[in-house]
Computed example of a mutant assay.
Amino acid sequence: MSQSVETRDETAATRRSRFGDWSSTATHHTPAEDAQAILTGVLLAGLGLSILAHLKFLTGGVAGLALIVSYVFGINVGLAFFLINIPFYALAVGRMGRAFTIKTFIAIGLLSLVSWWLPLVFSIDHIDPLAGAVIGGLLIGFALLALFRHRASLGGAGILAIYLQDRFGFRAGLVQLSFDLAILTVALFVVDFTSVIFSLIGAVVLNGFLAINHRPDRYLAT
Rank of each mutant, 00 (worst) to 15 (best):
I162M: 13
F148A: 11
G97E: 07
I86A: 14
L83F: 07
Q165C: 14
L118N: 01
G155S: 09
S112R: 03
L144C: 14
I108S: 13
F81G: 12
A157W: 02
F122M: 10
N76K: 07
L79N: 02
G109D: 04
S112N: 06
L138Q: 11
K103V: 03
G137A: 12
G109Q: 06
D125R: 11
W117M: 13
G132Y: 02
R149D: 08
R167A: 06
S153W: 01
I124D: 01
A157Y: 05
S153C: 10
L147V: 00
P129M: 12
V121N: 00
T101D: 13
V134L: 11
L120G: 06
L147S: 06
I75E: 03
D166L: 13
F82Q: 03
I135H: 09
M96C: 14
G94Y: 04
I108V: 15
N85F: 02
G94V: 05
D125A: 14
I108H: 13
L160H: 06
L110V: 06
S115W: 02
N76V: 13
G155Q: 05
G156Q: 04
P87L: 08
I102H: 10
N76F: 05
G141N: 08
S112H: 04
I84C: 10
V121K: 00
I102P: 10
F105A: 15
T101K: 13
S115Q: 03
W117V: 15
I108K: 11
I86W: 05
G137S: 12
L160P: 10
G94D: 07
P129S: 14
L110N: 09
F142Y: 03
L83V: 15
D166P: 06
A90W: 05
R149C: 11
L120V: 15
R98F: 15
L145D: 09
T101F: 12
T104R: 14
L164Y: 11
M96S: 15
L120C: 05
I140D: 14
G78I: 08
L113W: 08
F142V: 09
W116S: 10
G155Y: 01
G141Q: 04
I108E: 12
V121M: 00
W117H: 01
L111A: 04
G136F: 00
R167D: 05
V77G: 04
L91Y: 04
V134P: 03
L120R: 13
G132I: 04
D128V: 09
I124G: 06
V93F: 10
A146H: 08
A161Y: 00
A152M: 12
I124L: 09
R98D: 12
F105W: 11
V93H: 10
A143Y: 02
F105K: 10
G78Q: 00
L130F: 13
I135A: 15
G158C: 08
I159Q: 05
Y163E: 07
A99H: 07
M96P: 11
L164N: 09
P87T: 08
F142S: 10
L147C: 07
I84E: 08
L110S: 06
I108M: 14
L130I: 14
V121C: 00
I140R: 11
W117D: 00
R95F: 12
L120N: 10
